[in-house]
Design a protein around this nucleic acid. Structure first.
Length: 279
DNA sequence: AACAAGACCTGCATGC
DNA sequence: TGCATGCAGGTCTTGT
């Protein structure tokens, strides 16, 4: 589910039910996700109050009242669901949180590429999960000059480079495709050749796409994104992602025939683009 | 150091 | 109907 906008949406959706609340009960229904849960995680969380919920990279961060931070990644298929119907947990409901107000929140992740761990707030910058990460895509630090510096001399494709979280953080497969489309840059272009003027177009394109997606509550693929169960609707604004063979809509009457969205594979992932508009 | 490829895991759509 | 294949929002490790 999650690129930056979806994780941001999940964080915002959790604030209403979790901020200021204590965990009355935490149930781990297996011993690991992508990595093992830390020893004693449930006990460490029980009784703690959630002081702040925020996004860091594609992680959901919950700052607790004891100086620790609960770190959650949704992987490809993870969800946080606020339970409203007292249904019994399903096969992929791996962690169940109950607040002191009785609200139940389930972490559900069929593929288990997600993770959940705990770290001291003061050590986050040095933490294994974060220390190698580049600038956040929606932050002020991420600029054309910075992107240019990071891409300089890189021979890999710009599409693959955008997915490299050491270069920029938060962009995933969908928004990499959509950003390159908006900026008119071919995903096949060598990353090093984007450093400079093209980066001046690409950075604002990334920021705009992400901001619009956040405003739309993210993109919903096979399922809902928001903890409340509501759908994000940015998938309706996709110009190229998942639209192989369709017109990208950028054409005029003078456009050449080759104006349909193409799908290629880069770095083992699908890339969608318009060969006419993107050079 | 940079890069490509494989690994992790389940579910779903498609085609035979 | 069953079975095989390919594909899916992300990291992380291994090998060149």
């Amino acid at each position: 589910m999650p690129e930056l906008p979806e994780v941001e949406t999940v964080c915002r959706g959790l604030i209403g039910v979790l901020k200021g609340r204590r965990f009355a009960k935490v149930e781990l229904r297996r011993k690991d996700l992508r990595i093992p849960f830390p020893k004693g995680l449930a006990a460490a969380l029980t009784g703690r109050r959630v002081e702040r919920i925020y996004r860091r990279a594609k992680y959901i961060m919950m700052a607790l009242d004891d100086g620790q931070v609960l770190i959650i990644h949704l992987g490809m298929s993870g969800r946080m669901v606020i339970v409203k119907d007292a249904s019994s947990p399903g096969a992929h409901d791996h962690v169940i949180f109950t607040t002191d107000k009785g609200t139940e929140i389930r972490f559900n992740d069929p593929r288990r590429f997600g993770l959940m761990t705990l770290a001291a707030a003061a050590e986050l910058d040095q933490h294994k999960l974060f220390r190698h990460l580049g600038a956040d895509a929606v932050g002020d630090v991420f600029s054309p000059a910075m992107l240019s510096a990071a891409l300089k001399g890189r021979k890999t494709s710009i599409k693959v480079a955008l997915l490299d979280q050491r270069i920029v953080v938060g962009v995933g497969n969908i928004y990499a495709c959509e950003s390159l489309f908006r900026a008119g840059i071919s995903p096949k272009r060598k990353a090093g050749s984007v450093a400079g003027p093209r980066a001046e177009a690409l950075v604002p394109a990334i920021k705009q796409v992400l901001a619009e997606a956040i405003a739309a509550g993210g993109s919903s693929l096979r399922d809902h994104v928001q903890p409340s169960g509501e759908l994000g609707y940015f998938q309706n604004a996709w110009k190229v992602y998942g639209r192989e063979g369709e017109s990208c809509g950028c054409g005029s009457n003078k456009a050449p025939v080759d104006h349909k969205v193409k799908r290629i594979v880069q770095g083992g992932r699908s890339t969608f683009f318009c060969p006419y508009r993107q050079t």
